[in-house]
Design a protein around this nucleic acid. Structure first.
Lengths: 168, 168
DNA sequence: GTGTACTGTCTTGACATCGAGATATCTCTC
DNA sequence: GAGAGATATCTCGATGTCAAGACAGTACAC
């Protein structure tokens, strides 16, 4: 820490050091910042989507379908794995998206337990517009870092995420 | 990207490139990982706190008080600024923490609109134990990175957070 | 000191989420 | 081909959060 650009987290760490000098609070330097940045990112996302009349949760589902490529169709199970929510939540989300005319539900012809969810025309247009907007904002959020730094950051984060990806 | 250790996000980015080759999706390399890591971190926190019969939201409030130092007392307003929740949420949290015997409320003698919230003995003991546990788990979560890498990561994240800290 | 704007806290109603469990269907083994 | 266990989806109740607004008290100018 030869840095002296103190931010909220530096202050938080300093406060802990004063109160609990017996503990090694270094992990907070990384992980508190991850949490806080995620929170700010959530706000940026919310703002970007609001302009396209989408809630973050709607966007989550729609992008999962969009990424799947034509015919933009996935099962609820695949969607909940992609979005890391519970099945009850996904049922609820699909209900409301269908009601809003952004997705369609149909029985899976191969498995009578199953259902397939697909984007409507409207849903496709909406998600594409919102995604372009989101990227614009994310790029701006990252503008404080050069390309090399961004790649370094991505690489460090990838290392931290590795243990979660395989067993999941 | 000389790395070839592909993770979930690499796959996500590849999927977007296939579907939308016209868009520059590089920002996702950093920001999707931040979101995902934050989500995993939430789970780790929840697990750590569960062993001490605390919910994450309880811990948030208790640590803010703990960090303040003796007499471990803050106003609801100070608490909501420290935890980034709304005032309605904070009222609700304090209610339940008081009911659980972890904090105490008393009128602010200096300002009759105001209230002061302080840790009880039980609250203090509980938060100290949970915090030590949390640090253990966070350290483990970071064990994939050497000390220098952790500091580099912290520094890059600090740069990204800088724009949010000042105007807040 | 009186009026206006501000601050601090709490109330209320709507809402998305989770977890547990219900139901139907599939799969695999014997 | 029958039964056990796994899988896919949905239902339901409880909960934590937010946003907007109510209300009491303070600060400051004139």
């Amino acid at each position: 820490m030869t840095e002296d650009a103190r931010d909220e987290v530096d202050r938080l760490v300093a406060a802990w050091r004063a109160e609990r000098p017996d503990l090694d609070v270094e992990p907070l330097q990384v992980l508190s910042r991850v949490s806080r940045l995620a929170k700010h990112l959530d706000r940026a996302r919310r703002a970007a989507f609001a302009e396209h009349d989408l809630e973050p949760w709607e966007f989550d589902v729609l992008t999962a379908l969009r990424r799947a490529g034509k015919p933009y169709e996935l099962s609820p199970g695949a969607l909940l794995r992609a979005t890391l929510v519970t099945s009850g939540t996904m049922t609820n989300r699909i209900d409301r998206l269908a009601q809003a005319g952004l997705v369609r539900r149909r029985p899976d012809p191969e498995d009578r337990r199953g259902v397939l969810v697909s984007l409507t025309e409207t849903g496709l247009a909406r998600v594409d517009a919102a995604f372009a907007d989101l990227l614009r904002r994310e790029r701006e959020l990252l503008s404080g870092l050069g390309g090399a730094d961004q790649r370094a950051l991505a690489s460090l984060l990838r290392t931290l995420l590795a243990p979660f990806d395989s067993p999941l």
